[in-house]
């Protein structure tokens, strides 16, 4: 039943953020690296929505970029439908590329302002040679109607549309190569809530109709809860907890997840008691040793300051926390 479509194994990415060579020599500095993603494992099954949630510096966008091949990983590997993704060219890679797509955060930057909407949507069709001639125009019209716009809109330029309409155009472009898997990088965080609702509903409808699989990246826990079947929580480049969708919100295991949940404004005015959030995210260039969450953690112990916590199974998924390991041992 659960057939894995995307497997991410031991994924890591380091960025060289050193100053230029000449400055380093003159100022006697060493090379500097930023570890954006470290040792991340997860599997996405066909037809499900897997969400990665985290704050700034969590590495969620870096993972998205590596999954679609915009950035090469420095360690680990990504397996798409049994094929290891490596390199950027070659016929097999080209065939693979047709099967995944990406939707971006900022609909004002994701559409080329000099292109007509029709040309934008048709680019993947041309790139993969899927259709020719008037068939392309028809398909573009069809796609525009699928996302709730009209076929005549193909003649217009992006600036003639609102943010929500532009995001629909971006979705139409993503669908045009008939992909199975779409990486959605904060697809609604630049939109107003009522528009967000339209886009989220559309994305779910499309998933049901076309059997799509989503990797959904977001910082918004309420949106993630609404969309995801399974959720991975990232903190400073590491996966700290993974759980089945709604279960995460009933019983969060990792103290960071609990803190995140407590930080979400209480719209229901339920008056639930919440632990005040402490501190800020440390600078990822120089993360704390051991468990990188330990300076903000209410459960901090000596071993958290030295050793990276192992991943252990929880009732709802898995988590990486010394306190949980200790509780499991007892």
């Amino acid at each position: 039943m659960a057939e894995p479509l995307l497997q991410v194994q031991g994924l890591g990415r380091r960025f060289d953020i050193s100053r230029p060579w000449l400055n380093r020599v003159l100022e006697r500095q060493d090379r500097q690296f930023l570890t954006a993603v470290a040792d991340v494992d997860f599997t996405i099954n066909r037809g499900e929505t897997y969400a990665l949630v985290g704050e700034s510096g969590s590495g969620k966008s870096t993972i998205a970029k590596m999954v679609v091949g915009l950035l090469p990983p420095t360690s680990g590997r990504i397996v798409f439908d049994g094929q290891v993704m490596a390199g950027t060219e070659g016929a097999s890679m080209r065939a693979l590329r047709r099967r995944f797509q990406m939707i971006f955060q900022d609909p004002f930057a994701s559409l080329n302002p000099r292109w007509r909407v029709g040309e934008i949507i048709a680019e993947p069709i041309h790139r993969f040679g899927l259709l020719r001639g008037s068939a392309v125009t028809n398909r573009v019209g069809e796609l525009l109607e699928t996302v709730g716009l009209s076929a005549q809109d193909a003649e217009k330029y992006p600036h003639e549309f609102s943010g929500g309409q532009r995001q629909r155009i971006a979705i139409a472009r993503a669908l045009s190569s008939k992909p199975e898997f779409i990486v959605c990088d904060e697809p609604t965080s630049a939109l107003d809530v009522s528009v967000q609702a339209q886009i989220l509903n559309l994305m779910r409808d499309l998933q049901d109709e076309l059997g799509l699989t989503y990797l959904f990246i977001s910082h918004d826990l309420s949106v993630v809860r609404h969309m995801a079947n399974r959720i991975g929580v990232l903190y400073l480049g590491r996966l700290v907890e993974e759980a089945e969708g709604k279960a995460l919100f009933r019983a969060a295991h990792h103290p960071y997840t609990r803190m995140l949940l407590d930080a979400v404004p209480d719209l229901a005015l339920s008056g639930r008691r919440r632990q005040p959030v402490e501190g800020e995210i440390p600078n990822p260039i120089d993360p704390p040793p051991g468990c990188s969450f330990h300076p903000r953690c209410p459960l901090v112990m000596d071993r958290c300051r030295t050793g990276t916590p192992p991943v252990i199974a929880t009732q709802t998924g898995r988590a990486a926390c010394h306190a949980l390991t200790l509780a499991a041992d007892v």
């Binding site: 915009l70 590329r97 995944f100 797509q101 990406m102 930057a109 994701s110 680019e123 790139r127």
Partner: peptide
């Protein structure tokens, strides 16, 4: 670095 260029890179243009 704009996203429309990334969108083209994703499909390997």
């Amino acid at each position: 670095n704009k996203e429309y260029v990334q969108a083209a890179r994703v499909i390997g243009v």
